[in-house]
């Protein structure tokens, strides 16, 4: 059952403030992933244990010189169909949220699952993100 929209609105606003595109249905996910270039998909989560640091980390990383051509987000537990559809594009990667995927064209080239976000501070997570950006987005 999706969370109360009032509860998740500040977390959505976090993403909008970063100019990350909200993908709220499967068609939106498909259109986003069909774009040329590099694409980041952030699987958002209400879980403060992990997502509380993931969003600030993304905000830091998107200030780096090299960033993906496109950044989008699905919201686990909220935009249920869009999230399931996006996860279907993550090949053999088990679902977790929050998590972050990086595509180059159609290919998933990098993935950060939830357990590599938990218990880490935003700067450390951002460092891993910009390292991936430098490798795949430059």
């Amino acid at each position: 059952m999706p969370y109360d929209p009032m509860l998740v609105e500040p977390m959505r606003e976090d993403m909008r403030a970063m100019s990350v595109q909200e993908l709220t249905d499967p068609a939106g996910v498909d259109a986003f992933l069909a774009a040329e270039g590099t694409k980041l998909v952030f699987v958002n989560s209400v879980c403060g244990c992990a997502a509380g640091q993931a969003r600030p980390a993304l905000r830091l990383a998107l200030q780096h010189a090299n960033t993906p051509d496109h950044a989008g987000t699905v919201f686990a537990g909220q935009d249920v169909e869009a999230t399931a559809h996006a996860r279907g594009k993550f090949a053999q990667v088990p679902p977790s949220s929050p998590s972050i995927a990086l595509f180059k064209g159609d290919e998933l080239v990098w993935f950060m699952p939830r357990h590599l976000i938990e218990s880490r501070d935003a700067q450390t997570i951002a460092f891993d993100l910009v390292t991936a950006f430098d490798e795949h987005c430059s």
Binding site: D14, C47, A50, R55, R114
Partner: peptide, 15 residues
């Protein structure tokens, strides 16, 4: 910002 579940221990929510 997010939901927290205090009182469930240090490993709550951790894989």
């Amino acid at each position: 910002m997010g939901t927290f579940h205090h009182g469930k221990g240090d490993l709550h929510g951790i894989t």
